[in-house]
Design a binder for these strands. Structure first.
Lengths: 352, 352
DNA sequence: TTGTAGGCGTTATCAA
DNA sequence: TTGATAACGCCTACAA
């Protein structure tokens, strides 16, 4: 009969009995403190051998309860269908696994209560640290900040510039702002005078709008919302896919009646929709209108004309997050810092 | 001074003391078993009030250790960069969260040892169940099957048809095979006589090759590997992106010298590369060659001509996985079953 | 160098 | 209807 692995009966006591030693001796040896305490090599070998033979697996619940670290990190991440490949959870889990940590994953949803509850839940599971990525800064409410501050090790992964304020814990910011500035710079350098931003009018995009307008102003171009922003209505659960949503909005809000010679879309799907829409309305891309997307989908270079975009590098970002986390885990009194990761403009044909 | 949330000193004992009750009474009430056992309403109210006021948070480590259930599910999933949006981990985590379960996430990598180790680790964390998704069936080695069998609740999420064999535990299979058959049916129905499959020659694609060849044979078409398969070399870590990889391979292995009038690619990226390659070599899509991809990337319909593909519905799949898991969790002696989820052909212009 | 005993915070089992 | 008391499995002093 197969044994239920979740009720493995082999405990520290079993090993102690089989070796004829005490529980504590076995515990010490198994935790690698044998040499430190000068326990006979022979004894140690015996312990290891018996443990292996018996298939002993420490119960992490028990060791966590008894005060040891739990070797667990809580991940509270949003599932964003607008990221081209959302591999952040797996990447973090993978990197942390390599460092000997295991991960709790919770989808933060876009709901303050879920976030609060999940953080508390993680605390009650005694995670050694947390990574929290708010869908956008709006979710960094005082309540959430407070709960976050109660973890001794935390890394905040933000996607827009952030003001530390009362926040303890390290901040890693992968901001699109520099990317947007690069895009506008490129527009201007290649002679465009009326760049426009096509974006959903959501809170999470406010910072993009601001960055875009700031970039325009810097170049002495008109930046008023009426002239520089084409608003797409909010994407809702029941809507068709993102590409179609943008396309429909371009149709119904008559993009072709607006005056512009360059268009930055807040997603690659939207940018592709724009290219198709414009071509159908006899506007050449990039000759008449330069088009740029955001996020740099793997397929961007397969679009005709190849789609220029703003690239974010989730791998680098994750690596840095994990690095900061581990540092803090190993040196509890490390001062929290702030890392700025730049996104960068990838020039391709659609941008001229 | 802020308190370290991980060292919350408010325990069950605190609540007991403050209410003047015993720990067990408090425990029962807090676990909602007060009415069942007929504990006075007044007492219950008092317990709840005090617990709230004190900010009592149960320690899940302790309750896991003492009780039977940990309300935790282990997720062992591969991170596949070839899925258009890999939202499976988040979706599972989300659905399970709604059912009151929390999730351990581990990237299974494509490594037998990691899988074995991770499963054992999950066991030692006393998860109530596991979801395991092998990157492909090759990873269902006897050793892994055995470890998997030791969980009393497990769901296997496979992407190719699977032979149960010794496997206990529920199986959910989201197979591309039916989709591939539909594609070939469509090719034949629209008059194509020489369909070809462009695929990486990896173990995980063997079943696709077989399905494709079987479909051809069924229609009395030549199915030999020389005529029906265009092999793409394995995608390696250092390679450029998938789109470019396919494009390079088409170039270097002279796709244009092969004779075919329909092409199924094992990824949408590859299919887009094919479309661009063919057009550059003066072959019209779909008139001269019908092209179909796999997975139905969100951008497929934005390609020109719109890319036909085979759609997998990760949401349905995840829902079913969670449903089966919960069923088994609630009825431990439920017989394990097998669910077959079909992928389906989405016809668009590129397929004629 | 090894063993003993107490505690971590819950849940479960009885008894009252 | 409530309260002791014994697990659960491990860790860490402290004693020997």
């Amino acid at each position: 009969m197969l044994m239920d692995i979740t009720r493995n009966r082999i405990t520290l006591q079993s090993v102690a009995t089989h070796t004829g030693l005490g529980r504590s001796t076995v515990s010490l040896v198994l935790n690698g403190r044998g040499n430190e305490l000068g326990i006979a090599k022979k004894t140690q070998d015996r312990v290891f051998k018996v443990a292996r033979k018996l298939g002993y697996r420490p119960n992490s619940l028990a060791s966590g309860l008894a005060g040891k670290k739990t070797q667990t990190i809580g991940l509270l991440l949003p599932s964003s269908p607008f990221y081209p490949q959302n591999l952040i959870p797996q990447e973090l889990s993978l990197l942390l696994h390599r460092q000997g940590y295991h991960t709790y994953l919770v989808d933060s949803l876009q709901d303050q209560d879920v976030i609060l509850e999940s953080l508390t839940e993680m605390a009650s599971r005694r995670v050694d640290g947390v990574v929290f990525s708010p869908y956008h800064n709006h979710f960094l409410t005082p309540a959430i900040r407070e709960v976050l501050n109660q973890f001794s090790v935390s890394v905040l992964l933000a996607h827009e510039p952030i003001v530390r304020g009362s926040l303890r814990g390290h901040i890693v910011c992968e901001s699109v702002v520099p990317g947007i500035h690069e895009v506008v710079d490129h527009f201007v350098k290649t002679g465009r005078r009326r760049p426009m931003l096509a974006t959903n009018m959501t809170t999470s995009n406010q910072c993009k709008i601001k960055a875009f307008q700031a970039a325009l102003s810097r170049h002495g171009l008109k930046a008023g919302e009426e002239v520089s922003v084409f608003g797409i209505s909010r994407y809702l659960e029941g809507d068709p896919d993102y590409y179609t949503h943008f396309l429909n909005q371009f149709e119904s809000k008559h993009l072709d009646e607006r005056e512009f010679d360059a268009l930055l879309c807040t997603s690659d799907e939207g940018a592709v929709a724009a290219i198709n829409y414009l071509q159908e309305h006899n506007r050449r891309v990039p000759e008449d209108v330069a088009v740029v997307g955001l996020n740099d989908t793997p397929l961007a270079k397969g679009i005709r004309p190849p789609l220029a975009s703003v690239q974010r590098n989730y791998r680098n970002t994750c690596e840095l997050v994990v690095k900061r986390l581990i540092e803090k885990l190993n040196q509890p009194d490390l001062e929290p810092g702030y890392d700025d990761l730049r996104t960068k403009f990838i020039r391709r044909e659609s941008a001229g």
